Computed example of a mutant assay.
Amino acid sequence: METDCNPMELSSMSGFEENAELNGFEGTDMKDMRLEAEAVVNDVLFAVNNMFVSKTLRCADDVAYINVETREGNRYCLELTEAGLRVRPFSF
């Protein structure tokens, strides 16, 4: 099996968490979930009847809501977080 780096390289990175500010991660913000939600909509829109970022449920840096209508006519509200998507109570 091929790997991107050998075990010797990994041992030199053992202090990664403690020195995050030295590795270019100081002050890194979470993703803007509204932008992520728009990307999800653009990726999946071809496969559903309708899909859009909710205009009634408030999006934040850590959560966004997407309304979906399937080709079968079922409607769902999806919650998008860093953990992924999950079905929420209907919102449309």
Rank of each mutant, 00 (worst) to 15 (best):
M1Q: 13
M1T: 13
E2V: 08
T3E: 15
T3K: 10
T3C: 12
D4R: 05
D4C: 07
D4G: 12
D4P: 05
N6T: 09
N6W: 10
N6I: 05
P7I: 08
M8S: 13
M8N: 11
M8Y: 12
M8H: 08
E9R: 03
E9H: 04
L10F: 09
S11P: 00
S12T: 14
S12L: 12
M13T: 09
M13I: 08
S14T: 11
G15S: 14
G15E: 15
E17P: 00
E17V: 06
E18D: 09
A20K: 08
A20M: 14
E21D: 14
E21R: 11
E21S: 14
L22M: 11
L22D: 14
N23F: 15
G24D: 10
G24V: 05
F25E: 14
F25N: 12
G27M: 08
T28E: 11
D29A: 09
D29H: 03
D29V: 01
M30D: 05
M30C: 05
D32K: 05
R34K: 15
L35R: 02
E36H: 00
A39C: 03
V40F: 15
V40W: 13
N42H: 11
N42R: 15
N42A: 15
N42G: 08
D43M: 12
D43G: 07
D43Q: 13
V44Q: 11
L45W: 02
F46M: 07
F46C: 02
F46E: 14
F46P: 00
A47I: 04
V48M: 02
V48R: 00
V48S: 01
N49S: 15
N49E: 15
N49P: 01
N49D: 15
N50R: 10
M51S: 05
M51R: 00
M51V: 15
M51D: 03
F52E: 15
F52D: 10
V53L: 07
V53W: 02
S54F: 05
S54H: 07
K55L: 11
K55I: 08
T56E: 15
L57A: 11
L57C: 02
L57E: 13
C59S: 15
C59T: 10
A60D: 11
D61H: 07
D61F: 03
D62N: 14
D62L: 04
V63M: 09
V63R: 12
V63W: 03
A64Y: 04
A64M: 06
A64C: 11
Y65P: 07
Y65H: 14
I66C: 06
N67K: 02
N67P: 03
V68Q: 03
E69K: 11
E69P: 04
E69Q: 14
E69A: 09
T70I: 06
T70Y: 07
T70D: 12
G73K: 12
N74M: 06
R75S: 12
R75N: 13
Y76E: 10
Y76M: 06
C77R: 01
L78G: 02
L78E: 05
E79V: 07
E79Y: 00
E79N: 00
L80P: 01
T81D: 02
T81V: 03
E82I: 06
A83M: 06
A83T: 05
L85V: 04
L85P: 06
L85N: 03
L85A: 02
L85F: 06
R86F: 01
V87M: 05
V87K: 06
V87Y: 00
V87N: 02
R88Y: 07
R88W: 04
P89M: 05
F92A: 13
F92Q: 07
F92W: 14
F92G: 15
